[in-house]
């Protein structure tokens, strides 16, 4: 999935969250979005997902503009796997049911789902946790469950917004390694935002630096 930002600006009332941001991400790239809190990393993720729309400039995904006139936002989101800091798992569904939900949204036949769920969970080493509820998992396990949900539909893009934000160093590395492994295996486009300087220096991927809503 190719993503292009051209002079994108986003303001929330008087507050300017993004100012004249431009970048291009090619299909199959693994890109790090780096910057301190409030730099505009989450705003970029939300703009890509079509949760919010740019105030100025143009955003295109696979040459299709993402703006308020976009009629197929649901279809676009179905092609994106999300791994967010606040895991976004449905609390009263088990891990298996959470993955089943996204498979159902993507109209995956019911007969195929148990196998997919089993595979995804075993990839993130949660094969024995599928009947547990999110409240019964640790922070690291929750992020791995979230990753399992994200990869279950074979997305064309994975957006990982501070996936290690709530994790200790050991769990952070585990998540990063799993994402790296998935990228190597599938060449899926991945955008990972973080403010963790240890991670940034260790990972040899292209970096988009953000500070106060501007690229540097």
């Amino acid at each position: 999935m190719e993503i292009s930002f051209k002079s994108v600006g986003k303001s929330y009332g008087e507050t300017l969250a993004l100012d004249n941001v431009s970048f291009n991400i090619k299909s199959g790239d693994f890109v790090l979005l780096v910057g301190p809190s409030g730099a505009g990393k989450t705003t970029i993720m939300k703009l890509i997902l079509g949760q919010i729309f740019a105030t100025t400039g143009d955003i295109t995904i696979d040459s299709q503009p993402v703006d308020s006139r976009h009629r197929r936002l649901d279809k676009l989101r179905q092609q994106i796997g999300i791994v967010f800091q606040d895991n976004l798992l449905v609390s009263d569904k088990t891990i298996a049911e959470n993955i089943d939900l996204v498979l159902d949204i993507n109209s995956i036949p019911i007969a195929k789902r148990p196998e997919i769920i089993k595979n995804c969970l075993s990839q993130v080493r949660l094969g024995d946790r599928l009947r547990l509820f999110p409240s019964q998992l640790s922070a690291g396990e929750l992020q791995r469950a979230c990753l399992a949900r994200a990869i279950s539909t074979n997305p064309r893009l994975i957006l990982a917004d501070e996936p290690t934000g709530n994790l200790d160093a050991e769990n952070s590395w585990e998540i990063i390694k799993l994402i790296q492994k998935y990228h190597q295996a599938t060449k899926t486009t991945i955008i990972l935002s973080t403010h963790n300087s240890d991670l940034i220096s260790s990972l040899k991927y292209p970096v988009i630096h953000l500070a106060s809503g501007k690229t540097q």
Partner: peptide
């Protein structure tokens, strides 16, 4: 409401 927001983020339509 939170569940609905998650469904929408995952690509579920309003009808879904």
């Amino acid at each position: 409401k939170d569940e609905i927001k998650i469904i929408r983020l995952l690509g579920g339509s309003r009808l879904y």
